[in-house]
């Protein structure tokens, strides 16, 4: 198990280093340099040279790369060439917002999907099970931004229950925070719940065919009790894996929802940085997103053998 964790951690570090090189290289191949972009096309060559010197852009790429990485390791993402402001506070603030949004969405998706999927599996041959399966198939096809638009039309513009956009930090007012959280979180959660329901259903169906369930049934347990006593832990493994992947995907995937609801999350900051050609901010935000995706993957990789002793021993 220890070797397994060490192995995964090593892969994590390696992936992070490669990703940072790729991101840096992509941003450095840009036509026109960052100082020129920041000052505009009318800037004099002297002004461009002065700004280049100020931000160290006249250094060779390797030096700039090392400077960027060492800065990030110390929690400093540098200063924007465009706005002149520090990038780190922007990233820290927006990651928290997106974090709340995405974790709440996945939690809601799990709360919806686990009972629905289990029920659909136990009732697979009657109309309830078939209906749940069909609904989940349709749910997967609805993009979250379409769900958001429909929810806004119904619950905000028509019924007036929730604000149609905006964000409030929990400390500014918890009621206002919750009211603004509901529609974005539900828009994100519905699609993920549909995907997750299919996995839960299929995992439970697989488990129900196992010999140990048959044994439990032979001992006199009902189907439901056999599943709860012996099956759920086994069915949980694919579900944990999928939920982890969903969490990672949503970190970036939430960007559209953030735009619709005018939420200052990391995706909104990334889109703004791209629009402003604020390259250093783009680089920093992309690295933070990749780091978070890799961390989630690492946690899932370590969690799965913890839940499943068979994998633990094999590893």
């Amino acid at each position: 198990m220890l070797t397994y964790v060490a192995n995964r951690a090593l892969q994590f570090a390696l992936a992070l280093i490669v990703a940072s090189v790729v991101v840096f290289a992509l941003m450095s191949v840009l036509p026109g340099n960052a100082a020129q972009v920041a000052l505009g096309t009318n800037a004099t060559p002297e002004a461009v040279a002065a700004l280049e010197a100020q931000y160290g852009l006249d250094q060779p790429p390797a030096t700039r790369y090392l400077g960027w990485v060492t800065g990030m390791l110390g929690g400093d993402f540098g200063t924007s060439y465009v706005t002149g402001a520090a990038i780190t506070p922007v990233i820290v603030g927006s990651v928290q917002v997106t974090g709340i949004l995405v974790v709440a969405a996945i939690a809601l998706a799990i709360v919806i999907a686990v009972p629905l999927g289990t029920f659909a599996a136990l009732e697979q041959r009657n109309w309830i099970g078939v209906t749940i399966s069909a609904l989940s198939q349709i749910g997967i096809a609805v993009p979250n931004f379409l769900a958001a638009v429909i929810l806004v039309i119904v619950f905000s513009l028509t019924l007036g229950w929730f604000p149609s956009q905006g964000w409030m930090a929990p400390i500014e007012g918890f009621g206002g925070f919750l009211a603004r959280l509901v529609l974005p979180v539900v828009s994100l959660a519905l699609v993920q719940a549909a995907i997750l329901t299919r996995y839960v259903r299929s995992a439970v169906l697989d488990v129900m065919r196992e010999d140990y369930i048959r044994t439990a049934r032979a001992k006199g347990l009902t189907r439901t009790r056999a599943l709860f006593a012996h099956g759920l832990r086994n069915a949980a493994i694919p579900v944990i894996t999928v939920a982890g992947v969903q969490l990672a995907t949503l970190l970036v995937g939430a960007v559209i929802i953030e735009q619709i609801f005018v939420i200052p999350g990391i995706g909104s900051e990334l889109v703004r940085a791209v629009a402003n050609r604020d390259l250093l901010a783009v680089q920093g935000i992309v690295m933070v997103l990749v780091l978070l995706v890799l961390i989630i993957n690492l946690i899932v990789d370590i969690l799965v053998p913890v839940v499943d002793p068979r994998i633990r021993n094999a590893a």
């Binding site: 995907i195 694919p238 894996t241 999928v242 990789d301 499943d308 094999a314």
Partner: peptide, 20 residues
């Protein structure tokens, strides 16, 4: 399948976007 962990990555069972 995720249960055959050996050299297989448990994540192999899912695509990056969470689709099967």
């Amino acid at each position: 399948s995720p249960t055959s962990a050996g050299e297989t990555n448990p994540r192999d069972a899912v695509r990056a976007d969470g689709m099967p």
